[in-house]
Simulated scan of single mutants.
Amino acid sequence: MALSREALIEAVSAQMPDKRWKHTLGVMETSVKLAERYGGDPVRAETAAILHDVAKYWPVERMKEIIEANGLSAELLSYDKQLWHAEVGAFVAGDEYGITDPEVLDAIRYHTSGRENMGLLEKIVCLADYIEPGRDFPGVDHIRKLSKASLEEGLLAGFDSTISLLLQKRQIVFPLTVLARNDLVRILEDKI
């Protein structure tokens, strides 16, 4: 059985520094606003936002162990460790916090990488993670502006920003992010 909102907040906030909890509060607020704007379920959006970074500060050894022991995406282990917490977080949300809603679990699982054919809730939480009020990086205000007119335009700009930064740093781009970006381009072209 899933924990209450208050119990989730208490359990998750205890697992991260205050600065990261402040970020989570921003993602919660932004997810609710985006859900209301784009026809999503604000309660489900907030639940996914509460849990999106639950494993962010866990030791990498613990995340690796959970990935391997539970048959999670082993492909992740070949990529940046910053991606691991999303997959582990989705597993933990179900296993330890009783979340059974597959859309909430997918919103947690894909909030860092995106993927092709993202559902509404996935898009909302992923975009909220980019644009919550505490975020301050070059281009975030542009992404926020786009997100007021189009969920997909905002998310595409977010993925473009991430991919551009990784290219500038000569880092590997996770394939799901490229696929998510290209899928959004196709979706937006079809709307024209």
Rank of each mutant, 00 (worst) to 15 (best):
L184K: 14
C126Q: 07
H52C: 00
V60A: 13
V92W: 08
A90E: 00
A107C: 11
G98P: 03
V88D: 00
F159H: 15
K145W: 07
E29I: 00
K33P: 04
R62A: 14
T24W: 06
E75C: 03
Q82A: 07
D41Y: 04
K33R: 14
I99C: 04
L156E: 08
E122D: 03
I163S: 07
Q82T: 03
T112Y: 14
L121R: 01
I172S: 13
L156H: 12
L179N: 13
F174P: 00
A2C: 13
L188G: 15
H52S: 00
V12E: 00
S164F: 03
P175N: 09
L25P: 11
I163Y: 14
N182P: 09
R44M: 06
E36N: 11
L176G: 04
G39H: 02
P59Q: 11
L120Y: 00
L156F: 08
Y110S: 01
T162S: 03
S31T: 01
E132K: 10
P17W: 09
G114K: 09
W58M: 15
T24C: 06
S150H: 10
L83D: 15
D129W: 14
A69W: 08
Y38I: 04
A55T: 06
E10D: 08
D53S: 11
M16P: 13
L121D: 03
A11V: 14
R181S: 11
Q15D: 08
K19P: 05
D129I: 02
R170M: 01
